[in-house]
Amino acid sequence: MVEGVVELIKGNFSDVEIVIPEHQEKRVHISVEKEKVKEIAKFLKDNGFRHLSFITCVDWIDEGKFELVYGLYSYEEKIVVLIKTKIDRDNPKQETLLPLWDQAQTYEREIHEMFGVYFDGNPGLTPFILEDWEGIPPMRKDFDSRKYSQITYDSEAK
C-alpha cells in the first residue's frame, strides 16, 4: 500500500520530501539531493523494488538546473516510486547506477547524448542514436530545431 511505502522511506531517511500526487493512484514522488540517490535506490531495491523502469532528464533552463528522474517498480506492492534530483546545468555530473542495475547503461547513454550529462564511473558513454553529431546536445532548450531544419534541409547546396 502507498502508506506502507511512505512509512518505510520516512523511517530510514529523514530529510527527503515525499509527495503523493492527487488524482493518481499507486504513485509516490520523492525529491532528494544528488548524493543520496544511490543510497535510496539500493535501499528500495533490497525491499522489493527490483524493476528499473526508466531514467530520464528534464531541462529547467530558467533555474539553471537539470532534473534527473528515476522510476522504480515493485511487483509485490504494485507501486511506482519516482526519485527526482536536481543537478547543476553548467557542469552536469552524477554518479552512475551501473553497479545496481546492468541495464541502466542504455538510459545513461541516451541522456549523455541528448542532454550532455556526464555519469561518473560509466565506461561506455558512446553515441547511441545520432551519428557524427558535432553541435550542442539536441534536447536542450536552447537548440532551435526549426531553424536548423530550415537551413540544412530546405535548400540545395550552392
Binding site: L130, E131, D132, W133, E134, Y148, T152
Partner: peptide
C-alpha cells in the same frame, strides 16, 4: 553536393 551538405553539417547552425 546536396548529399555532402547534409552529411557534413551535423548539428551546427550556420
Amino acid at each position: 553536393a546536396n548529399q555532402d551538405k547534409v552529411f557534413k553539417n551535423r548539428g551546427i547552425i550556420e
